[in-house]
């Protein structure tokens, strides 16, 4: 009995002394941190993709709590998740329009081959020495720098061409930064019609190096419902994302080079081998 009592007493005494030391230390070296940051971090997707412009989700959460960034800056989070964060912070959040990446090139290896390339299989390396295997200066090099940068596996390399799967893309924009040809743009997810060409050269020059280039024939402009649905810039036509055409334009316009495509169909491989 005595042993038990002494043991208990000793343990209690030791505990008390140590607790006192830690308590004093905790007071002396106290760090103020906002517990909300951790909660918000947990609410975010945790992909750490950097699409919001901050270094990872924790950093973004800090910005939200400090009121520097709105919750809808996260391109990955679903609408509900964003609202949840906003509710927790006691602010209202507008739903942000979802964007997806589009690689503005449709020239696969079989459409635009130039010469064999024997070197590092990386777009950013290839542009430094002769620019890869394809004939077009403006087109996709096809060595998958964007696909490797994509944290969501949304980019596939098919026939030496980067193709974005719109259903997998969350629009974080990582691929936009790595493309040495500045081919990739973020477009509203609701728009399906895109011109898959980025070459400002003359139609004939483009046609010489690529079967699927936009030759600026304006068939799509004429077929569109209103005048400014397709924008003409020199020899290149692009979708007007502020006043986008309906998906049926692709069929109506019957683009002679199939540069005008639906993103969903393009991803599904519907245009392969149809170029003349």
């Amino acid at each position: 009995m005595t042993i038990i009592l002494v043991s208990l007493l000793f343990a209690a005494l030791l505990g008390a002394i140590l607790a006192l030391i830690i308590g004093v230390a905790a007071k002396a070296f106290a760090v103020e941190s906002d517990p909300r940051i951790e909660t918000v971090t947990d609410m975010l997707p945790g992909a750490n993709c950097g699409g919001c412009g901050y270094a990872g989700c924790a950093d973004f959460a800090k910005a939200i709590v400090e009121g520097v960034a709105p919750p809808n800056d996260c391109p990955v989070a679903s609408a509900e998740a964003t609202v949840r964060v906003a509710d927790y912070m006691g602010i209202t959040s507008e739903e942000k329009e979802k964007v997806v990446a589009v690689v503005r090139c449709s020239g696969g290896i079989s459409d635009t081959v130039r010469s064999p390339y024997n070197g590092v299989e990386d777009c950013r390396s290839a542009v430094l020495v002769a620019g890869g295997a394809k004939g077009c200066d403006y087109g996709c090099i096809g060595f998958a720098s964007c696909a490797r940068a994509c944290p969501f596996d949304a980019i596939e390399i098919r026939d030496g061409l980067a193709v974005v799967h719109p259903d997998l893309c969350v629009g974080c924009g990582k691929c936009v930064d790595v493309c040495p040809k500045d081919l990739i743009i973020l477009t509203p997810a609701a728009v399906d019609v895109h011109v898959y060409c980025n070459s400002p050269e003359k139609g004939a020059a483009k046609r010489k190096v690529c079967k699927t280039a936009c030759i600026g024939c304006r068939k799509c402009v004429k077929a569109s419902d209103s005048e400014d649905q397709m924008l003409i810039d020199g020899f290149l036509i692009a979708t007007n994302y502020n006043n986008p055409p309906l998906p049926d334009l692709v069929e109506k316009a019957a683009c002679p080079t199939t540069a005008l495509r639906l993103a969903t169909q393009h991803a599904a491989g519907a245009y392969e081998g149809v170029s003349k």
Binding site: L14, G15, L18, A19, I21, I22, A25, A26, F29
Partner: peptide, 22 residues
């Protein structure tokens, strides 16, 4: 063992507090 582990745990706590601060 009981005493040792309590002492160690307290020291770790101490390190943690100091590290978080500095």
């Amino acid at each position: 063992i009981l005493v040792f582990i309590v002492v160690i745990a307290s020291l770790v706590q101490l390190v943690e507090i100091v590290l978080q601060k500095f």
